[in-house]
């Protein structure tokens, strides 16, 4: 990344307090164009809260978020989405009463006329591998499939930055492999931030990893450095292995 260039996403001094609890404390976070970043950390480390501040679902107590240099702190979620940020939430947010195809169509229809949106929806469904179940109601699908429907919808929205909160949760080994492949492919043209607990999965996709602990960034480095770091093992991996 060119150091002089304006970063895709730049968060400074991000703090979120809920009453007396500080969920995220003074976090600085910079992401370049077409970068892939993994966020890891134990439960309650503040990862999802951080995501929600980036997308406008929560207004930070302090700090600023800039997207391509423009201040988007405190903007409504739909305004953030329109700048080109797509988010797959931890618990899938999908349209249960609509079919897979309709879910993806609605996502594509924000920017396009119905005819074009239908084409984009079909292409995205094909791309993510959901063609066989495109006519099914999303509410009837298994958890892993619902995750993919949500990813397909986020893709059809044509964002420049995707935030994926636990995209591999509830998936079997094959599905996890397929998802990691998909993420690498998306990363050819788009930037991603991925929150994940599954270390296998992190090893499959990660280049740079940011570790959250107790609302702050513990370490941010190359995946191998991070995973062999002793303090990371202590707060997270060690505890998980125990």
């Amino acid at each position: 990344m060119n150091a002089d260039a304006v970063p895709l996403l730049e968060a400074r001094g991000m703090t979120m307090r809920f009453g007396g609890v500080t969920a995220v404390n003074n976090v600085d976070f910079v992401l370049g164009e077409v970068e892939l970043r993994c966020l890891i950390g134990p439960n309650g480390a503040g990862k999802s809260t951080f995501f929600k501040m980036l997308t406008g679902q929560l207004t930070p107590t302090a700090g600023t978020v800039r997207f391509r240099g423009e201040d988007i702190t405190g903007a409504y979620p739909h305004q953030v989405a329109r700048r080109g940020v797509g988010i797959k939430t931890q618990v899938p947010n999908v349209f249960d009463g609509l079919t897979v195809r309709e879910n993806v169509f609605v996502a594509a229809a924000r920017l396009h006329q119905a005819r074009t949106a239908r084409r984009i929806a079909d292409e995205t469904i094909e791309h993510v591998g959901l063609t066989r179940i495109a006519g099914r109601m999303v509410g009837q699908l298994a958890h892993g499939q619902r995750q993919w429907v949500e990813i397909a919808a986020v893709l059809a929205q044509e964002p420049d930055l995707l935030l994926l909160d636990e995209p591999a949760a509830g998936m079997n080994k094959e599905e996890v492999a397929r998802t990691s492949e998909l993420i690498r492919e998306i990363n050819k043209t788009k930037a991603l931030i991925v929150v994940e607990h599954d270390m296998q999965f992190i090893r499959m996709i990660a280049k740079t990893v940011t570790v959250f602990n107790q609302g702050s960034i513990l370490i941010e480095d190359d995946v191998h450095t991070v995973l062999s770091n002793q303090s990371v093992r202590d707060v997270y991996l060690g505890r998980q292995a125990a």
Binding site: H78, L98, F105, V106, R110, Q113
Partner: peptide, 25 residues
């Protein structure tokens, strides 16, 4: 049947998702 109507139904189904896709519910 229009795009508008599809979005209206989508918002009924999940307002958060509609918002995250860039629609103002």
């Amino acid at each position: 049947a229009s795009r508008f109507g599809r979005v209206v139904v989508a918002i009924r189904e999940n307002e958060t998702r509609a918002m995250l896709l860039g629609y103002d519910p």
